[in-house]
Write a protein that binds this DNA or RNA. Sequence first.
RNA 1: GGAGGGAUGCCUGAGCGGUUAAAAGGGGCGGGCUGUAAACCCGUUGGCUAUGCCUACGGUGGUUCGAAUCCACCUCCCUCCA
Length: 417
Amino acid sequence: MPELKSDFLRDIVGRGFMRQCTDLEALDEEAAGGTVVAYIGYDCTAPSLHVGHMVSIMLLRRMQRAGHKPIVLMGGGTTKVGDPSGKDETRRLLPDARIAANMAGIRESFESYLAFGDDETGAVVVDNDEWLSELTYIPFLRDIGRHFTINRMLAMDSVRLRLDREQPLTFLEFNYMVLQGYDFVELFRRYGCTLQMGGSDQWGNIVNGVELGRRVAGARLFGLTTPLIATASGAKMGKTAEGAVWLDPGMCSPWDYWQFWRNTEDGDVGRFLRLFTDLPLDETARLEALEGAEVNEAKKVLANEATALLHGPEAAEAAAETARRTFEEGGAADGLPSVAVARSRLGEGLLLFEALREAGLAPSNAEARRLIRGGGARVNGVPVSDEFHKVTTADLDADGGVRLSAGKKRHVLLRAP
RNA sequence: GGAGGGAUGCCUGAGCGGUUAAAAGGGGCGGGCUGUAAACCCGUUGGCUAUGCCUACGGUGGUUCGAAUCCACCUCCCUCCA
């Protein structure tokens, strides 16, 4: 790879953010010479973003810190259509109110990563519904539609996959790529945006936008994609027992978020430090070089840094401290998720399986009982295998709490004040 | 509009009158080994304080001592023809 001139590209290439770029040298030239305006689009299908979106969020962050202007494009309009990429089934359509609510939740998360404002490098949020819902059919077909050939559209991966598998692809979805391409043109016109970034599965859509911009606006646009992040053992990143690791603290507590990063596989630590923290590269290299059990130190740094970015340094510190007390000392720490229960119920002796269920450690009594039978249940760190064991006031510590555990990692503090 | 095919547990997918809470795999959860890692091995995987009861094979009725399995209608999906 030739020597890069711009801080922005040197930084993100060095940290592993880039998979493909439509014209790296020319983009480097632009970025070295002035402020680049770039965007990434986000679907509004869920009420929050999750860890799977972190690469692109961090990319926008690094870009802004390198002196450029990020645009967060909310797909309020395109979500009404549905992206066929990577899906072999038609996506169900969401009601408009849900889309709007989702958008609000997503926006929230960005506050932690980007500095919003109208100045030269201030981040902005735009909703493509603004222009997409204004479109009128015939003029749109004449101005934009004529630049797309069915031949090329049929060759797109997202389309071919469906057709090859003989799955239906509706005309509505078929239009997604046209609309996404149009977004780029619109952002170029409104904000002088010349770069679209996204996951590598968006490459086709991004290239369409670049091409369209050249044809209808004579613009020189760029596209850049990030690699798909899988874990070292090949699993898709960002899923845990409870499902996706959400960014919204209401959907995934700072404690769980910290734990997610703490549980990173050894082989991923270096890469994740580079992608998901702001630590300088010499520091990440030092941490990555740690061997054996020492990598745990690197994982803690990763968890601290990643959590601090999203939830703030205090939340990260609290999670780290709770983890230290819970795992390294085996005690009941304050920061654990806690559930309150009436003290009188402990007086009579509360069945452990019911307590586990109420604490959210098991979805049903039957599951809780299986957990106990399997030897995975603990009260204050002591394994209990009696299915009908009762938790009593004698189990309470001085503050009126009992620590219930399901397995080695999931702990809840049951409080009976 | 016509002809055929399909809908099974978290997912894929077998079963095609009783021995089926439903094969197999995946995933999940737990245990062991470890370092709150990976890999591997083992157990478990509808609900209910349970030698039992309830709910379950798209929906509603029916045939039968007995249905996920047979019949009718309905809903949704797919393929082909017009």
